[in-house]
Design a protein around this nucleic acid. Structure first.
Lengths: 358, 358
DNA sequence: TTAAAAAGCGTAATCGATTACGCGAAAGTA
DNA sequence: TACTTTCGCGTAATCGATTACGCTTTTTAA
């Protein structure tokens, strides 16, 4: 007891004023710390008269709960971890925004770490976020690192990956089929009569989404019986509008017979579209362009961009719900395939029959 | 001791396997919990032989630190709170992205809460985020709620507001002068000879950024000696491209003599630009448009958009640094005025001299 | 009025990691 | 060999909130 007291006095002699604890509130209100706790957590078990005293004392001391102590005792932080490539892309920003909103309705909040599309340190990121108290995890795409799989398995934390729907994975995923989403676009162009198509993709290294889309692009060509390879250009997402434009420029110069371009993101598509117009080409008469993501802007462009609508907000919401259900209801997270469908607008049309015209 | 043991056994008989603690790692390695702690935090004080045993045991048990216990003992969470209108807007997403990146270099991470531009519950948001362990706070714009001011003052937490630079505030701010940024645009249009200008703004209710810009717009008119009011249309940021287009349409219909439009965001400006073109008007010959924010897309538009470049990434970075410095170096946060300058491109030009032409 | 039941509150143990203090062993000195 | 210093490790207190348990007081029942 004497020891306790000396420690207290030490607290007060420090340069910074010690944050008040429940015991301090209690002392001021003439009750024990335990009663203060009850006053906040189960006020119906405390006499109204005392309740009032406690509240008054708490206000006077500007008391606020010590989150660490509560978390330690209750083993809960009400935090989920989010590991995501970037927030600097409308798609991911919308996803996280929706994830956060849904979480907050249940008193949870996300802690966010961005990888910059570089998954090499993902294991460290996960450790860092778990050691920060995350009760569950949201990640993007397929996770290759075996250490991560083992860590997740042994930690018994609810984890969900999003963006890609991966049915063969041990980690549940809530997303769409990236192979199909790209395949739709290419098949549509093939059906329109295009035989010479290019693809502007993101970096595929360690990125299952891009890999799937590129694979879909190549498969579509093969299944259409077209021998000649189609160009695939991978480039980074930084300044994606500009690089979309740059790539489009090079493509049109190096492959003058190109009649269509499939883009892995609307950022690329918008850049490509501007560049095509700048070069005096008409879209879709001279070249067709199909995007991916369905940015809000897509429908306002001239011509309006045909693109694949990706359920960004829905993914964020469903992932949040899944994690929440895993926590409160102890329900296992089940994978879920969401829809991503091609929106036909005005940027794709049948190719000019150049051979006949020439 | 017996009590302790029974509790342990209880842990193991529970349905969920108990997370291992340092004591468990120690038991397996044949040392005490204290030595395990040292093995991680000051390995030079532990014999290499024991160090190895501890690491092996930790790996075998898949041990990871209990963040709450550590936070309680050390009084630190390595978390900063972010309270921001939305992530669904490129400007804020970029700001947060940069904030997060900078933080992560020092082992910190942000917990994010979005307000949806509604500051009425900001006090509750702050409490929630502080009770989640935030060691500091980043907020956007001026905070009106007196409860918030008092809470911040008494909590002794480092807090910084961003986006707006507010020199008369008790809470330090790192941002730009929203009055000036808007004023630049309007003055520029006035200098070009425009006398009939409209403004498309965001909701100004409880939003000092919009209020400042609208004020600048009105002041500029008055100081130019123009009697007639200029229209100001406030509208929400949701589907901002489309609403920019809608508002532009109404404006052009209701005010056919309009020669220029100042927008409070590039989202509005881009929508407005598209709509103007769709209505058969030439930009800037028939109508000038100036945006705000300088989205990457702005320079790719046709015509390239003249707009105010806002230092989003810089704000995020500097706020992170300021909070970090306040934590580790105990340096007070000082307000800082950043630059936001008008970028002249091709969407604004002198008005057609209608009177003479007519 | 007396006994039983219920309500209100306090004591003390607990969550898990950290660290001041101290003990014993090893290394160094005379 | 005997003594001092250094090193390595364990014991126990600590951070602050929660809660099982039990004691006291009030209410209800008889």
């Amino acid at each position: 007891m004497a020891n306790q007291k000396s420690v207290r006095s030490k607290r007060k002699t420090g340069n910074k004023p010690a944050r008040p604890r429940m015991a301090d509130v209690g002392k001021l209100a003439g009750v024990s710390a335990c009663t203060v706790s009850r006053a906040f957590n189960s006020p119906e078990t405390v006499r109204p008269q005392i309740l009032e005293k406690v509240h008054k004392a708490a206000k006077e001391l500007n008391y606020s709960l010590n989150p660490a102590a509560k978390a330690l005792r209750l083993q809960q932080t009400h935090i989920f971890g989010v590991i995501i490539p970037t927030l600097n892309h409308a798609m991911f920003a919308e996803l996280v925004n929706s994830f956060q909103s849904t979480l907050s309705e249940s008193g949870y909040a996300p802690v966010i770490i961005t990888t910059g599309f570089d998954n090499r340190n993902i294991f460290d990121h996960i450790r860092a976020i778990v050691e920060r108290g995350a009760e569950g995890l949201l990640m993007v795409g397929r996770v290759e690192d075996p250490r991560v799989r083992e860590f997740i398995e042994r930690s018994h934390l609810p984890v969900v990956t999003t963006y890609s729907y991966l049915e063969d994975e041990s980690i549940p995923s809530i997303g769409f089929d990236n192979y199909q989403s790209a395949r739709q676009s290419v098949d549509y162009l093939l059906a329109l009569g295009h035989t010479k198509i290019a693809m502007i993709a993101g970096p595929s290294q360690g990125n299952d989404r891009q890999q799937s889309r590129i694979q879909a692009f190549r498969d579509a060509r093969e299944m259409a019986g077209i021998k000649e390879e189609w160009p695939v250009v991978e480039n980074a997402y930084d300044s994606a509008y500009a690089s979309g434009a740059n790539v489009m420029h090079s493509l049109l110069v190096s492959h003058p017979d190109l009649t269509a371009v499939v883009c892995s993101s609307d950022t690329f598509a918008i850049g490509a579209l501007q560049e095509a117009k700048r070069m005096g080409l008409r879209v879709p008469e001279d070249v067709s362009i199909i995007g991916h993501d369905d940015f809000e802007l897509a429908q306002l462009l001239d011509p309006a961009l045909s693109t694949v609508k990706v359920p960004a907000a829905e993914m964020g919401k469903r992932c949040a719900e899944a994690l929440l259900n895993a926590k409160v209801g102890n329900n296992p997270i089940v994978s879920r395939k969401l829809n991503a469908s091609l929106i036909l607008r005005d940027s794709a049309a049948p190719p000019k029959t150049k051979t006949k015209a020439a």
